[in-house]
Nucleic acid binder design. Structure first.
Lengths: 190, 190, 190, 190
DNA sequence: CATGAATGAGGGTTCATTCAT
DNA sequence: AATGAATGAACCCTCATTCAT
């Protein structure tokens, strides 16, 4: 999903590359960056160690790349969800629903982004900042609009967007801890 | 017994222990659990490797303990901040202010809790969950109260408390990225 | 698959494995289990540390396995020697001769079994007990037979077998201390 | 017992020294030379680490000294046992009995000598050789005498003495494995 | 004399990475 | 392209030994 055959990776023969990336997200999410070994990844992908280094320069590069792609994927999904709704509450609700859906079908994606190996890889701090900023940007626009229309009180919408993105993360995380996240998600209002 | 223990000796020992723990928090926060080596810690504390193991059973135990202690510290600070205010907005404002203050003077504390090596240490998952739950609990009470008084619309306060704690985290994190976090924090409304 | 395995590769691997085991027996015999470091072993085998762990799970497992194998080897050699002779004195004589031969060509083997690191590795106590028991069993049969035929006085042959195996060990050990163990061994009577 | 206050160690104030030596024999016997730590010894003796180095130059020296003393103790005991009997069989029987008695009351002594850390400490090889030689000497005299009197066939009594000492060791070791070594020992004939 | 905090060399083991095949 | 044997730096931790008190 995250690493779905985009334009970059559409060559027909890179089934192995894809397999390794899928395996990598899972393994990284499960064990964290450091505890996940290259061996873990290749054996999950059922290839040899050497093959890993044919497709990727090294473990860290792959990890950063995976983070980037995963973040982009989630971002796009949320954008889609938000775009299709008219009012702010509905946008939020749709975003949470979409977020939870991803979290259910691809727990690794969410784990990687939210509790994953940030901090483990220095190069990721910057990446994470970009990701968070994009999330905030995503919410600021609807907030500004709502404020213009007088639907919400005048406020620092930047700050509110930050708050909103943090709020959604936390709610989603808690929802994913429940046995039936998707049902619960339907009943969310803020 | 020419050797008097439990006197100045005792105090010195405690001081060194504390110094080592402080060094450890810094190093863990900076590099993450796995990348931080025991050697990093001891050289930050200016002692020998063996000294580490004289004071602590092992790296993991120390880390978990540090996380626990740090979480408790932050939690208490927030509780204090919240208790002293009358209305919900003021409580939130005070919490953010207090949170930011800690983040400015002890960046390591906040880093350890929010982006730290959770996931690196299995034993920490449970601990992290407890910490998040405490944060949520902290906010639910004032929310319930506000709802009872009709100050906020009827809502699922559990969910709202989750959202609120996530919102605050995110806002604080963004504030800490600015050059003058404390000034900015004064102007926070939600 | 440009890489042909299970061919010369397989043989080479086995050869290296064997070489490492031989090096290990020597080193263990020379220094004892604890004093022998994995580094000692690998440099005796002229490979890198990592290679050791590619072939063997860990130091202790290898040691136990080596002990087992060595014991089995000696036991078989003695059985062969004993089987080929008709009378008890000749059996004993042949066993000593064979024992000494092994001790001359493979001092490490004998050293490992008799003065080796038993006690250093808890798992070995049981193994050693089994080995000694096998030795005793080896002698009890001919003793019983000799007693039945009236060639030796009625006695507790179990005890005698124990005595005999201990006696042989000691004699062999003393013989191996001499400059010309094999010549001397020819002149053994009990 | 082994380290009983001989003439050397009769100073009144060395209770600690004695305690440490007693503890050391036990610990060495139990864990082997390398696995036994100085800390094990001192905590068994209930003194501080520093104290160890006040009384002994280092771990190895103590071990060698202990081996020496222990060997001497056993040797004297066997000599006593042998001296008091008239015939060879009775001498042997008495030696076994005495040996077993020691093994029952001071298992550490026997363990240290027979399966203990020989090989762990290079300096001990020579010591062990001396000990074995003394044992052989112990038996050669009665054997020579018996041969002179025509009680046993003409033979290489050196070799026989070796055999005898090895035989006794092994028998004693097996006896000590039984639940009631002392009763069993009474019924020993060779 | 006795103590125990402090040291640091060194041990077992892991794992990212390379390279001959 | 693909393999997996081989490497060795680096990690965590132990423990004999020292020395200020």
């Amino acid at each position: 999903m995250t690493y779905r055959s985009t334009e970059r990776t559409r060559q027909k023969k890179d089934a192995k590359r894809t397999a390794m990336m899928q395996a990598a997200v899972r393994v990284f999410a499960e064990k964290g960056y450091h505890a996940a070994t290259v061996r873990d990844i290749v054996s999950a992908a059922d290839v040899a160690v050497g093959t890993f280094y044919f497709y990727f320069p090294d473990k860290e590069t792959l990890f950063v790349y995976l983070y980037e792609e995963t973040a982009e994927f989630l971002l796009q999904a949320l954008k889609q969800a938000v775009k299709g709704r008219a009012t702010l509450p509905k946008k939020i609700s749709a975003a949470v629903q979409s977020y939870v859906n991803i979290g259910v079908f691809e727990p690794a994606v969410v784990h990687l982004l939210l509790v994953g190996g940030v901090g483990a890889v220095p190069a990721l701090l910057e990446q994470r900042a970009r990701f968070r900023k994009s999330l905030v940007d995503l919410w600021q626009e609807p907030l500004d609009e709502a404020m213009d229309k007088g639907l919400i009180l005048p406020q620092n919408t930047r700050r509110s967007a930050e708050a909103l993105s943090g709020a959604i993360d936390e709610v989603v995380l808690h929802l994913l801890d429940r046995p039936d996240p998707q049902q619960y998600a339907s009943a969310t209002v803020v």
